[in-house]
C-alpha cells in the first residue's frame, strides 16, 4: 500500500466520527441556499431575461461550483491549519515512516473525497428538483470536484506557511467571499461593467461556474470546456508542486 494511502485512511477513520457535523456545513448549507435563492427568490426573475431559463436552472450549477470552492477552503485551509498548528495531526504522522509529501498527498486525497461526495449529494438534489436540462449534468460532479481541487491544493500549500488562524479568516472574508459573489454564480458576468469583466475571466471560480453551468444546460462546447478544465487542472498541479516544497519545509523544520 502506498504510504500516502495510510494518511488517507487515518482521515477516513477520523471522518467516521465527524461526518455528521460536516454534513451541515458542506451539504445542508448549499442546499438551503439552492432552495431559498434558486427556488424562492429566483421566482422574481423573469425567464426572458435569462434567455428562457428559470433562475433555478441558471443558479444551481453555479452554486455546485461555488460550494466546492467553499468546501475546499474548509478542508484545504482550516483543516490544514488545525493539523499543523493546533491538533498537530501532521506531527503525529511525521513521526512515522511517512514523509511530508505522503502526508500532503493523503490529505489532498481526503479533501477530494470530501469535495466530491458533497458535490454528488448536491447534484442529486439539483436533478431531483429538475434544475438541469441535459444528461451531461452528471459531469457537474467531476467538474465541481476539479474546481474544488484547483482551490484546495494551492490553499493547502499556502496554509502550512501561515502562523495565525486569523489570516485564514481574513482571506476568506476579503478574497473568497467577493469571488463567491462576482464569478457568475448569482448573475452572469455579462452584466458586469466592461472594465471589470476581464478580471472575472481570470477568477478560477468563474471557470468552474461556467464549466458546470454549460454542462448542466447542455450548451458546453469542447473548446471552452477544455479551456476551463485546463485552467483548473493547471492550478491544481501548481498547488501540488508548491505543496511538495512547503509541506517539507514546514513539517521537517
Amino acid at each position: 500500500m502506498p504510504m500516502f494511502l495510510r494518511e488517507f485512511l487515518s482521515w477516513m477513520l477520523r471522518y467516521r466520527r465527524t461526518w455528521k457535523s460536516t454534513i451541515v456545513i458542506s451539504v445542508a448549507n448549499p442546499l438551503l441556499f439552492l432552495v431559498a435563492i434558486g427556488a424562492g427568490l429566483g421566482r422574481l426573475v423573469d425567464p426572458s431575461s435569462l434567455g428562457g431559463l428559470t433562475y433555478l436552472e441558471f443558479f444551481a450549477p453555479g452554486l455546485i461550483a461555488a460550494a466546492a470552492m467553499q468546501n475546499a477552503y474548509i478542508e484545504g485551509a482550516f483543516a490544514v491549519h488545525g493539523s499543523l498548528r493546533r491538533g498537530q495531526g501532521y506531527a503525529v504522522a511525521a513521526a512515522t515512516p511517512l514523509e511530508p509529501r505522503d502526508i500532503m498527498a493523503g490529505h489532498l486525497l481526503f479533501m477530494a473525497f470530501r469535495i466530491g461526495t458533497s458535490a454528488l449529494a448536491f447534484a442529486v438534489v439539483m436533478m431531483a428538483l429538475g434544475a438541469t436540462r441535459s444528461p451531461w449534468a452528471v459531469l457537474t460532479v467531476p467538474a465541481a470536484l476539479l474546481t474544488g481541487m484547483a482551490f484546495a491544493a494551492p490553499l493547502a500549500a499556502w496554509t502550512v506557511t501561515v502562523d495565525k488562524f486569523d489570516t485564514l479568516n481574513k482571506v476568506f472574508r476579503f478574497v473568497l467571499m467577493p469571488m463567491y459573489l462576482f464569478s457568475g454564480t448569482f448573475f452572469g458576468i455579462e452584466t458586469l461593467p466592461d472594465w471589470l469583466r476581464p478580471l472575472a475571466y481570470v477568477l478560477p471560480l468563474w471557470h468552474g461556474v461556467d464549466l458546470c453551468r454549460t454542462l448542466s444546460l447542455g450548451t458546453a462546447t469542447l473548446l471552452t470546456s477544455a479551456i476551463h478544465v485546463g485552467y483548473l487542472g493547471a492550478l491544481t498541479a501548481a498547488g501540488v508542486a508548491a505543496a511538495l516544497v512547503t509541506y517539507r519545509r514546514h513539517i521537517h523544520v
Binding site: R6, L9, R14, R17
Partner: peptide, 25 residues
Amino acid sequence: VPQDDVLDPDLTVRENLTMYGLYFG
C-alpha cells in the same frame, strides 16, 4: 513520545492506537 500529548480528540482511546498502527502499515 512528544512533549505535548498530540492525541486525536475525535477518536476513542482504542482508535488512537489503531490509527497509529495504520501509519506503520
